[in-house]
Design a protein around this nucleic acid. Structure first.
Lengths: 155, 155
DNA sequence: TTCAAGGTGGGGAAAAGTGGGAAAAAGTGG
DNA sequence: CCACTTTTTCCCACTTTTCCCCACCTTGAA
């Protein structure tokens, strides 16, 4: 399932369109008919979630649905659980790919990530993470010293 | 599985292509049909990871997948675990072998390792380590004195 | 010295990425 | 319900990159 790997930088145009790298597109087009650029039939869709760290996450439906099942278990009446539901769905959007393989990101999403012109898309296996390039660079530099400690703790 | 042993020096051309030594290629081509240079059918793939010490690591899929299973356990919402996910995947790339047994390394990867023309590939059993030749030489010279102490502690 | 295998380089076709005009759709107000 | 404005999306054209394929060079073995 999925298997997005690699980092690419692309431009977001005036219309807020961001290209999903062809390599990644192929990953979730295998379940559809056409592997090429011209995608006939039903156009794929991605779920876009604002992340706490100032990035955006892109999930393909099958992966997001997995998470959604957890969310459905939350009570409508337990205050904490209800709050969480509200918070998550307030951060979530759906984005359809156009026929050139791009998604249109809303102003809201773009400003959350601080994206104006350029965006880096990181393939993180099961999802994609979208960063404003300088913001990502800053994050990585500031936390470079913590890497080996974290990595050896978890992996 | 794997069993890469030996050190080789090769050139990286203008297109950033690096030859995987035939000897190593055979190791992970055994699971495919053709042991020779002309590889028909699906081309093998390697995972390339930027290393903290200024080198690059090449993993064959079966080995990397092992690590990936650990990464899948990390939370999307725990700040530390999320940071680690970002850091790792920002350092990772996938590289397909072409029909001559080469991988194309991105500018990003090459500059991380300081590679312009030449590269040394060290077989380290389960992975390969790629160094800019002088950088490797310097590392080894500067740390020559620490060898016996480290070795006797761990081996 | 001839052959085979491994290694190196490059031209050119195909694919991917980028941007913009124009049609279509959706939203807004009278 | 209609007219107007704004947004979306489809399509096309241009540019850049990738990668496929072939040719050549070197080395070591027969």
């Amino acid at each position: 399932m999925a298997g997005f790997i690699g980092k690419e930088q692309h431009t977001v145009d005036d219309k807020g369109r961001l290209l999903i790298p062809a390599r990644f597109r192929r990953k979730f087009l295998q379940q559809h008919e056409d592997p090429g650029v011209g995608l006939q039939g039903r156009l794929p869709v991605l779920y876009v979630l604002k992340s706490d760290d100032g990035s955006l996450e892109l999930y393909e439906p099958s992966v997001w649905n997995e998470k959604e099942r957890q969310l459905l278990k939350l009570s409508d009446f337990n205050p904490d659980e209800r709050l969480l539901t509200t918070m998550i769905y307030a951060r979530l959007e759906q984005a359809d790919l156009d026929r050139s393989g791009r998604i249109a990101l809303s102003r809201d999403m773009l400003s959350h990530a601080g994206i104006e012109k350029d965006a880096v898309i990181i393939g993180a296996n099961v999802k994609m993470i979208v960063w404003e390039p300088l913001r990502l660079q800053r994050l990585l530099e500031e936390n470079a010293g913590r890497f080996s400690r974290l990595a050896s703790r978890y992996v």
